[in-house]
Design a protein around this nucleic acid. Structure first.
Lengths: 203, 203
DNA sequence: CTTGTAATGGAACGATCATTCCAATACAAG
DNA sequence: CTTGTATTGGAATGATCGTTCCATTACAAG
């Protein structure tokens, strides 16, 4: 039965995002995508040039539906270390409650199978890491303004470190079944950052 | 010309390891593997049941040729924080001098595209992370014996954190072109660990 | 109702994949 | 030289892949 209910194309991207996230870009086929999204081959190819372009749309959408809801509080005016702690807890809780395989972070997963020649995909990954680092840095600058414990360079280095370290959390999350191990990681990260900044560790 | 010089099968695994590491398990084909290793299809399939089993042999070999040469000093009797610092610097220098695309760490790459149902491959990844955590933990215990700053639980948590954090370094290394950024990360990690343990940061 | 549009299900295509198979052949052992 | 074995290059297989194409059809606009 062709032409059922005309559905917004947001559905396509949202469902494709879930599929890419759960299974991986390389591992999932266009046939799978047709089934998972409920959108026909013809429609997918009329909206996107191919699998890769659809994936790019999903990477952009990932920021909206997965990153922003959790990270916006860190980017908010006046955010402090407790907002970073909450960001980590949100991510862990979200992974914990997700009914399915450990999917980790789409950006981290993509990073690991990125074709070095694929500059276009790389830009989406750069955006993500830059976003995290900027968010962390602004918070660290705000905290550091009170104590002046760190130089500007050190604040930036601490922000870059935090981003890298968080990527590690999502990397290893794909084989971790115990969310408490992730919480121990988050507590330790907060403890180390607080000590470096010379402020109280949020509880 | 069939049957040239009989080469040890170590060549097969070593060259296959390089191929898996550079290109990735999913992205590389058996045809590529035949070309990269110089071993015929028939021989590969007579030595290994298939692509997956060959990959497992490569994951095991990875420990010998990539991990042990760098991490053994951390696992050595009497190793201290300076050995961990050297381990990080070794990895960064190795990535820096490698002539080719940023390959990162084979274990981290595999983690990101691991089929959750593939318990067999998962064991090789578990081995790696356990190895790192144990190595870090032993060093931290040795350092902590001097100051007694941390509880046994905290020492373990710090070791787990360090492992996770290092995985993050190798994850992001695949898109980093500037080795100095990795060095800043390593310095910050050493600084944070030293502070937590209450000992001098190795220089 | 008529027309135009948008989306359908599914066939078709050429490429590539992992795997199997085998006749041909080089070398070691006798 | 003869035999046995290990390895070869390459054909063959059956499956799956991304992509293209299209007749069909539901719905909105007139």
């Amino acid at each position: 039965m062709p032409r059922p209910i005309s559905q917004s194309r947001t559905d396509l991207v949202d469902n494709a995002l879930a599929a890419f996230w759960n299974v991986g870009f390389q591992a999932i086929s266009m046939g799978d995508l047709v089934q998972e999204t409920g959108v026909s081959r013809g429609s997918i190819y009329s909206d996107f040039k191919g699998k890769r372009e659809l994936f790019h749309a999903c990477l952009a959408r990932y920021q909206e539906v997965a990153v922003t809801p959790k990270f916006a509080r860190v980017e908010a005016e006046g955010a402090k270390l407790s907002e970073i702690k909450q960001f980590l807890e949100d991510g862990i809780a979200s992974q914990e409650s997700f009914d399915g395989p450990m999917r980790g972070c789409l950006v981290v997963n993509t990073l690991a199978q990125l074709d070095p020649a694929d500059k276009e995909t790389k830009q989406y990954l750069d955006f993500h890491t830059t976003r995290l680092t900027n968010g962390f840095r602004t918070v660290f600058e705000r905290e550091n303004a009170l104590t002046g414990a760190l130089s500007d360079q050190d604040v930036i280095a601490l922000a870059e470190f935090t981003t890298t370290s968080v990527l590690g959390l999502w990397s290893i999350s794909r084989k971790i079944t115990d969310a408490d191990e992730m919480r121990r990681y988050a507590d330790m990260l907060m403890s180390l950052i607080s000590a470096k900044l010379g402020v109280e560790c949020p509880t």
